[in-house]
C-alpha cells in the first residue's frame, strides 16, 4: 500500500516579500517547506504506522535547489520522493499544477493522498482539491481528524456552522489543517538516512505532458502587479497614571474618535 503526500516550498513566513518590477522576487528569499504540508507529512507517517506495510511517497513540484527541502521531508521518515522540475512550469496556475500532479500520482496508485490545506504564498488551496476532481475521487479539505477503516474513511473538519464529519470511500484526497497533529522534528538518524533515500526527478516530458498545455505560458490567470498594503501610521499611546485611567481614556477614544463602539 502507498500513501502520497504532496509538498511544496514557500518563502519563509518570517521573510519580507521583495518586489521587482511590481512582481514578487524570491531570488534572495529563504525557502522553507510549506508549514501546512508538515502536518500532511506527519499524518501520512502516522497512518502508515497504523496501516502497516505502507510506503509513503512525497511529490513536490519545484526546482533543483528544492531538493534540500525535499530531503528534510525524507528525514521526517517519508520513504521516497519525486521532484517534478521543469522550467515551463514557472507561472503555471493551480489547475495546471493539478494536472501535473495527476500525471505523477495516478501511476503510483496510492490508497490516498495528503497535502497541506494551502500554500502560505498565494493561499490557493486549490491544487489538491482539483486533483481529486480530475481523478474522480472524493476529497475532504482542512481535516482535523482522519480515520481509515479498510477502504472507507471518516474525516472531521471545522466547517462554517460547526464540526463536519465526512464519510466516503478510498482513494481520496485530504488536506491537513494545523489541528490535525503535531509534526515531528527529523531525528539525526532520519537526517542521515534521508541522504540515501530514493529521490527521482521528472520533467513534464517524462510524465507524458505537453508543456504548451500545462506550462505557465498557457495559464488561465495572470498576476498583473503587486503592491505593499498601505502602511498604517502608528497611532498614539494612551496616557494615564493607573490602568483604570488608561482604560477610561481608551474607551473614550474608541467611542468619540474612532467611533467603533
Amino acid at each position: 500500500m502507498r500513501i502520497v503526500v504532496i509538498v511544496k516550498e514557500v518563502a519563509d513566513t518570517e521573510a519580507v516579500i521583495s518586489l521587482k518590477d511590481g512582481l514578487p522576487d524570491l531570488s534572495a528569499t529563504a525557502m522553507v517547506n510549506n508549514p501546512y504540508d508538515e502536518y500532511a507529512v506527519e499524518e501520512a507517517l502516522q497512518q502508515a504506522d497504523k496501516l502497516g506495510d505502507c510506503t509513503v511517497t512525497a511529490v513536490m513540484v519545484g526546482r533543483e535547489k528544492s531538493k534540500e527541502n525535499l530531503r528534510k521531508i525524507l528525514a521526517m521518515g517519508v520513504g521516497e520522493a519525486v521532484l517534478i522540475d521543469d522550467e515551463a512550469l514557472a507561472g503555471a496556475d493551480p489547475l495546471q499544477i493539478a494536472q501535473v500532479l495527476k500525471a505523477a500520482i495516478e501511476p503510483l496508485e496510492p490508497a490516498f493522498v495528503l497535502a497541506g490545506r494551502q500554500g502560505v504564498d498565494y493561499d490557493w488551496g486549490l491544487a489538491p482539491l482539483a486533483l481529486a476532481e480530475l481523478l474522480g475521487w472524493g476529497h475532504v479539505g482542512l481535516i482535523a481528524k482522519l480515520e481509515i477503516t479498510g477502504s472507507a474513511f471518516k474525516a472531521e473538519t471545522e466547517g462554517d456552522d460547526g464540526l463536519l464529519t465526512f464519510e466516503g470511500s478510498l482513494p481520496a484526497v485530504f488536506t491537513a489543517d494545523k489541528s490535525l497533529n503535531e509534526p515531528r522534528y527529523p531525528s539525526l538518524k532520519g537526517i542521515m538516512q534521508a541522504k540515501k533515500k530514493p529521490l527521482e526527478t521528472k520533467t513534464l516530458a517524462d510524465l507524458g505532458l505537453d508543456a504548451a498545455a500545462v506550462g505557465g505560458a498557457a495559464a488561465g490567470l495572470k498576476l498583473i502587479n503587486c503592491n505593499y498594503p498601505p502602511r498604517k501610521e502608528a497611532g498614539r499611546v494612551i496616557a494615564g497614571e493607573t490602568a483604570a485611567e488608561k482604560a477610561a481614556a481608551l474607551v473614550k477614544a474608541l467611542r468619540e474618535e474612532a467611533k467603533v463602539i
Binding site: P24, D123, G125, L126, I224, C226, Y228, P229
Partner: peptide
C-alpha cells in the same frame, strides 16, 4: 480558472481585475 479570497473587483479596459492579498497580506496582488 479560479481566483479565491478576493478583496476587490473592478473592470479596467474591459478586463476584470481581482485584488487578492498574497503571502497573507504582506503584498496585495492584482
Amino acid at each position: 480558472p479560479f481566483i479565491n479570497d478576493v478583496t476587490a473587483l473592478a473592470v479596467e479596459d474591459g478586463q476584470v481585475v481581482a485584488t487578492k492579498p498574497l503571502y497573507a497580506g504582506k503584498v496585495i496582488g492584482k
